[in-house]
Simulated assay, not measured.
Amino acid sequence: MELHVTQLSVDNGVGLVRLSRPGRGNSWTTRMNAEYRWLMSCLDDDPRVRVIVVTGAGQQFCVGADTKALDHYRESDQDYLESFRNDVMATPGHGVRPEYEHELIWHWGLQKPVIAAINGACAGIAVALAAYCDLRYAAAGAKLTTSTPRLGLPAEFGLSWIMPRIVGLTHSADILLSGRVFLAEEARAMGFLNGVMPRETLEEEVLRIARGLADSTSPVAVKTAKRQLYADLMRHDAGAAIEDSRELMGQLMKQPDFSEAMRAMKDKRPPAFSPLPGTAMGSTAS
């Protein structure tokens, strides 16, 4: 796919996806959705990539849906739901659980961890995108808002489901009912962010964290833990989670990565874990 509103680079086991609409605040469009889904599908299938980072070009992460596109629905007869049909788009994260085969929550079906590096304004759909990433870091002073109450619209993309699970009901009610702007520092205090960093060093620091994950963790173990994390979020049986984890422990103890970890510990060296199987993208990940 030819990229018009996104950018991609791959280095040291980390795939960096950049939302890029210069002059439009990296606002979200159908084209950006198509490119983003395609890139994430490719990166998830590339054995060279172990961690994925998502950020924005310039000084903003994503200011939400393009305002011209939003205004189009007000004046036209086009159905909003039909406009989000993605039959011809890539389907990253599909085939794991039916619950994940919907917009944005497909991030949970990916094999690899996804880190959001919120480098500036993050509004509307961008808040939801970040919420479905596995880890979230933001630049100091970055502004976040769901926006929708101030536009006469409801909570979107399942934010009413995911936000209480990240920050609790009290903070979620504040965020979703008011649509107010809040800063990265407050988002960190709520528990929405894993960390806040100076804007000038955010990308460098997040890439350092991503490379650390890529270098020091077993891809199959990370994939398994990610599957556990979100599957267990959907059920209420702690005992079943324990028994499933014991079964998985037995399975992974028979895998090459566990043997390599034991040898590396004995030899006092970093382990050389195997990549996840996949089809390398070749020139796509240039």
Rank of each mutant, 00 (worst) to 15 (best):
T224I: 07
A126T: 04
G120P: 02
D174S: 15
D44P: 02
L202V: 04
S218T: 01
A214Q: 02
E185K: 05
R136M: 03
D45L: 03
R50F: 03
A221E: 00
I115Y: 03
A130H: 07
D244Y: 10
V96M: 13
A142T: 03
R31H: 04
H107I: 01
A65D: 08
A69F: 13
A155W: 06
L151H: 13
I115C: 09
N194C: 08
R235Y: 02
A261F: 11
G152R: 13
C62I: 00
R97I: 08
S147G: 01
S147C: 15
T67M: 09
V114F: 01
W106C: 06
R85E: 02
R31C: 07
G179W: 10
T148M: 14
T284L: 08
A187D: 01
E99K: 10
R50N: 04
E35T: 03
D45Q: 05
R21Y: 11
V167Q: 07
C133F: 09
S178E: 05
M249W: 15
M262N: 10
I118H: 00
A140W: 03
R136I: 06
L81Q: 12
L3R: 14
A34I: 03
N26L: 03
V14P: 14
C122N: 04
S20A: 12
A187C: 07
D44R: 02
Y132I: 07
M253H: 09
S172W: 13
V206Y: 11
I209M: 13
L3A: 10
R188Y: 04
E156N: 13
T146D: 00
F61V: 01
R188L: 09
G56L: 00
H236G: 07
A184W: 01
V54Q: 05
I118F: 01
A189G: 01
L3N: 06
L233V: 04
V220P: 00
E75H: 15
T29V: 09
Y36K: 00
M163H: 15
S76H: 14
D44C: 02
A264D: 09
N86A: 15
D44G: 01
D257T: 09
L193N: 05
E247N: 14
Q251P: 08
E260V: 13
T170I: 11
D71H: 15
T279E: 09
V114I: 08
L43N: 05
Y137I: 02
I162Y: 05
G212F: 07
S245H: 14
P149Y: 08
E35Q: 04
L81I: 13
R269F: 11
D46Y: 03
N194Q: 07
F84A: 15
A210P: 10
Q251H: 12
S216K: 02
E247Q: 15
N33T: 01
S259T: 13
V51F: 06
Y132F: 13
L193F: 08
T148G: 06
L151E: 12
L3K: 09
V51I: 12
N86W: 11
A121S: 04
D232N: 11
G168F: 02
R165V: 10
Q111S: 10
Y73Q: 10
E35S: 05
A272G: 03
D257A: 11
E205F: 06
A123G: 05
E247R: 15
